[in-house]
Computed example of a mutant assay.
Amino acid sequence: MKKFAVPALVAALTMGAAVMPAHAEKAAGDLLVRGRVIYVQPDESSSLKLGTTAIAGKAAVDSSVVPELDFSYFFTDNLAAELILGTTHHNVAAKGSPLGASVDLGDVWLLPPTLTLQYHFNPKGKISPYVGAGVNYTIFYGDDPGAAKGISYDNAFGLAAQAGVDIELNDKWSLNFDVKKIWLDTDVKVNAGLASPVNAKVDIDPWIFGVGVGYRF
């Protein structure tokens, strides 16, 4: 159902916005600052190798709930750029590999600044849906190897897409709902105490669901 979530959200909100009365809201030169609580759900897939030999198993990354801050600057009434800032913490495991049914690979922090270009369909209305697309660069830090002797993650670029809606509360404040998809791949090297390291190609590809409030300057 995830692949239908964004198109359905945009279609429903756009139709709803069309019947709402016009109201002064976003305009060229405005800065909209939002604070959200986000739920990050990895949609991971992976392949493992012992040295250069493929082995069974997969990487598993758990979900996370964290605060997020973003800034949207409006170049025109409809067109804006959004910078999304936040950091997430995830536990990692290797499952179904020759190392065991489930091997704890500790935890890691992700810092994924994301920049998107957005189109707002109804910037002068009380209900203003938008879509966006852009790029992400994820930095992995603070890793703990868990049961392994050591682990390293490669920082990586990825693409991002989003859809959401701002619902005006008054002249300055608004309620925001937002959905993002980030396509993020990383190479992971695990020192499991064997003659060769375990190398993993992991597609984390998280869905990010957020709700929060915005203030317009």
Rank of each mutant, 00 (worst) to 15 (best):
K49E: 14
S196C: 03
W207V: 10
L13P: 00
P123C: 04
R34C: 12
G125S: 14
D187A: 05
I139G: 08
K3R: 14
S72Y: 07
P67F: 01
V131N: 02
I208C: 05
Y39R: 14
Q162P: 00
L79P: 00
N78Q: 13
G100P: 01
L99T: 00
H90S: 06
V211Y: 07
L85G: 11
L9S: 07
A80V: 11
V10E: 08
A17Y: 09
V61R: 00
A56W: 02
D62R: 01
D203S: 14
A24W: 10
V165T: 12
D178Y: 01
I127T: 15
H90C: 06
T186L: 01
A28C: 12
S97D: 07
L105Q: 06
D171N: 13
G214A: 09
F71A: 05
V61L: 01
D107V: 01
G125Y: 02
I151C: 03
V103G: 02
V37P: 04
A80R: 03
V103K: 02
L175E: 00
K181W: 01
R36M: 15
S196G: 05
L31T: 12
K201N: 10
V92E: 05
V66H: 07
G132V: 09
S102K: 10
N155C: 07
L117M: 14
I139C: 02
G193W: 08
V65L: 13
E82G: 00
Y39M: 12
Y119N: 06
V61N: 00
V165C: 13
A5P: 06
D77A: 13
N191I: 09
V92P: 02
D143M: 05
A18P: 00
W183V: 09
N191E: 08
V213L: 15
G125T: 10
W183C: 01
A12Q: 03
G142I: 08
V202A: 13
G134S: 11
D203N: 12
T52V: 11
A93C: 14
G214K: 07
K58L: 09
A5T: 13
F140W: 06
G29T: 12
L83T: 14
D144H: 07
V179H: 07
A24H: 15
A60H: 13
I84W: 07
V10N: 10
D104I: 02
I151E: 01
K26Q: 10
S128C: 11
L105H: 01
A160R: 00
H89P: 02
A160L: 02
